Amino acid sequence: MKKTLALCVMILAAVSLFAAGSKESGEDSSLKKIQDRGTFILGLDDTFPPMGFRNENNEIVGFDIDLAREVTKRMGVTLLLQPIDWNAKEQELNTGKIDCIWNGFTVTEERKKVVNFSEPYLENAQVAVVKTSSAVTTLADLAGKSIGLQAGSSASNAVDAAPVFKASLKGIVEFKENLTALMDLEIGGVDAVIVDLLVANDNIKRSGKDFRILDESLAPENYAIGFRKNDNALRNAVQKHLDDMAADGTMARISTTWFGADITIVGK
């Protein structure tokens, strides 16, 4: 009995030492897991043009989608697109339902605490969209008025980070999607919508709606890809492919297709 107990203790000690050694070495199986499975699951808000959205055939397309397809092609795995509730994106990531968040995902200090970001690949800004007929020309003109924004978005973070501006507002209406917020602006439910500049430009161009963007932005920002905090191997592999795509002109070509010019910042 004593011999059996001693043997068990020795085995447990060996397992603990092995686990500790693996942890200290910084190794992880995140990349191998993708390679063995043969699929890469990308989490996104599928109503976020031009980054990721559904076209007239209900297919998910967009700038980020084209980037991801090229990256996964170079990785030798199949891209799977998984629409998620944007307000619960970090939970979707950390429970393993998706392998990354890649859909106009803004880097913030708060998100850095729970997400392992790639290097930024696009610059952006949070702006206010109003009707063309609106008398509002500056952010200060929105005092006493209502704004709309997507719940859990960087627009919400930008408003929270501007306490004077936020306190001046009559109210803030949260929507599940940016497109719904812009629809509410169109019918007069809110006086302005705070949204990503790239999304605002794309919406106005595609819809032809009678909107305009204020010249004054609320906050500058960068887009990057979000991975689980300890998934360094996967993060680094994706980053290498993005670096290679920037160097060989592939990223510039994809950007020009969607934006009419190369607006990416990788390697610049």
Rank of each mutant, 00 (worst) to 15 (best):
A237Q: 14
D46Q: 13
A237G: 08
V238I: 00
A88V: 07
N124P: 06
N94R: 10
V173N: 13
E70V: 09
F211T: 06
E59K: 13
E221I: 01
V61K: 13
D248H: 02
I194H: 09
D28E: 09
D64W: 03
G226K: 08
K166T: 07
E70K: 12
V77H: 11
S154L: 03
L42F: 13
T250V: 12
D243H: 07
D196F: 03
D210P: 00
L139Q: 00
N201C: 04
S22H: 04
I65R: 06
D66T: 08
S156L: 04
D248G: 03
M10E: 04
I187F: 06
D99M: 12
S29F: 12
E70F: 07
A181N: 01
L182V: 00
V193S: 08
G76Y: 10
A252E: 12
D99N: 15
L234A: 06
E110F: 02
C100V: 14
L44W: 07
A143H: 08
A261I: 02
D66R: 00
F175A: 01
N55P: 01
D244H: 05
R228Y: 04
Q126L: 11
A13D: 08
R54V: 01
A13H: 05
I84S: 06
T47M: 15
I41E: 13
M251H: 08
D85R: 14
R54L: 05
M183I: 09
G96I: 02
V114Q: 10
E24R: 13
K176N: 14
C8P: 01
T132Y: 05
K209M: 12
S22W: 05
G171H: 12
E123G: 11
N236C: 01
I187H: 02
S207G: 07
T106R: 06
S118H: 08
A233P: 01
N116F: 05
H241Y: 11
D45R: 13
E27R: 09
M10V: 14
L31I: 00
G62F: 07
G144Y: 07
T39V: 15
I225N: 04
E119Q: 12
T257P: 05
V115S: 05
F165M: 00
S16L: 15
N116R: 14
D215Q: 12
L179E: 15
G21D: 15
G152R: 09
P120K: 05
V15F: 09
T39F: 03
E216C: 10
I98M: 14
L31G: 03
A167P: 02
I11D: 07
V61T: 12
A233D: 07
E186C: 00
L139T: 00
L242W: 09
R235A: 09
G52K: 08
S217R: 03
L182H: 09
S30T: 00
P83R: 04
A158F: 12
D36A: 09
E59A: 13
K112Y: 04
L5S: 11
D231L: 02
V77R: 00
D196T: 06
I34Y: 07
L80A: 10
